[in-house]
Nucleic acid binder design. Structure first.
Lengths: 214, 214
DNA sequence: CTTGCATGTTACTAGCGGTAACCTCAGTCT
DNA sequence: AGACTGAGGTTACCGCTAGTAACATGCAAG
């Protein structure tokens, strides 16, 4: 078999794979995270074994699906963090980019982070346990690298940067998750509040009069 | 039926319920989060329908199980946060209490936070999606209340306190999760690094020489 | 003795993830 | 031409799960 033919087959398979992923995306957006392999196969107009030939198992399909959205999000975040502006402005822009993303496509966000929400009695949804953590980990590690590369933190800077990277990502994630559910304020206010926290306003705050302090 | 009898029955049911919960605890600690209702029933020496009579469905059992551990953890955290010491010391003590808890019983922690980890091909574990969020939410709301009660944050203090409460809890959670998996440093170092972050060391850090700044 | 009622069981349903076996048809080698 | 190979697709199944209906048993009250 010559090379052109092989690439031809490869191309066909890749195209098919993309079609299947788009079908899976539609089903997930429609049925929520408890979309079944059967449903996805039906949406794609085929049957289960083909899905399994392409993605191995459900985790494989999930991973491929998650990678798409994750890569896009990470690219946006990198761009925001690398914009030409001062540090606080860029931190705020990055927070805002993340929050704007989860606000714009909450279904996708919930699919990535919260398995089996919304379905009345559905319990066998996608298992996010093995994938949402990698997403947060990836963001944490990337941020850690940025911090270590660009900030002067003295000795132990590497370890400190990693702790901060994961910590800040966790802060952003938890605050965003809560905000998305309750919408207690505008996105801009949330961004400013989080940046204030990172900028040491907690340490600078005075005790409330009459209270035991904190 | 008179009152004494009713309380007698109630007591019996409660005792049984506690026994079942302890059996479930054992199974979860042994089999991990993918423990099945069948396995739990077998461990308790009974069969499935009894479990369903007591807890409604799997989520009910899970919720009861999670509540136990969650309540215990929250009590420890409240105690640490209320100890007589200055603010930073108490924040560090609280972080350390949380981290010590997840370090001491990682299986329980993973059960509460990461469904279906560890099992080779097990995909139908407990659905944590409906419960881990409530745990983090509860911690976030409690911390928000503490911050609002004790800190002088000027106008908008309530909203700021809530954002910070959820954000700080998320930071603690994500950092702890990462730390538990990689063990890159001692618990004390992690606590100090996180407290440093909260105390504004990020804002105070200078740019690294030669870099574009951050 | 009979009526409740809680406790327990067996035996089942419906649906899931995943797989073995087969089928079909384009293109290739002899 | 005619047998061969292999990718794409399907049917029919397995073992497992959560959850339930229907049937048994023992124990107190009238």
């Amino acid at each position: 078999m010559d090379t052109t033919q092989r690439t031809e087959q490869q191309r066909s398979a890749d195209r098919r794979r993309r079609e299947l992923l788009e079908a899976a995306d539609r089903v997930v957006l429609r049925d929520g995270p408890q979309a079944s392999m059967n449903a996805i196969a039906a949406e794609a107009g085929i049957t289960k074994p083909i899905l399994y030939r392409h993605f191995g198992d459900k985790s494989g399909l999930y991973a491929a699906l998650a990678k798409r959205h994750t890569d896009a999000l990470l690219n946006s975040l990198r761009a925001a963090l690398d914009a030409p502006a001062d540090r606080r402005e860029r931190v705020e822009a990055t927070l805002d980019t993340y929050l704007a993303a989860i606000e714009a496509r909450p279904q996708v966000y919930r699919f990535l982070m919260h398995p089996a929400d919304g379905g009345p009695s559905a319990d066998q949804g996608f298992d996010v346990g093995k994938h949402s953590a990698p997403l947060l980990r990836r963001m944490g590690e990337e941020l850690a690298q940025v911090i270590e590369d660009r900030l002067d933190l003295g000795p132990e800077s590497q370890q400190l940067a990693r702790v901060w990277g994961h910590g800040i990502v966790g802060m952003m994630h938890a605050a965003g998750d809560w905000w998305l559910g309750e919408r207690p304020c505008s996105r801009a206010e949330l961004v400013r509040s989080l940046a204030d926290l990172l900028w040491g306003r907690l340490a600078a705050a005075g005790d409330k009069i009459g209270g035991p302090g904190f």
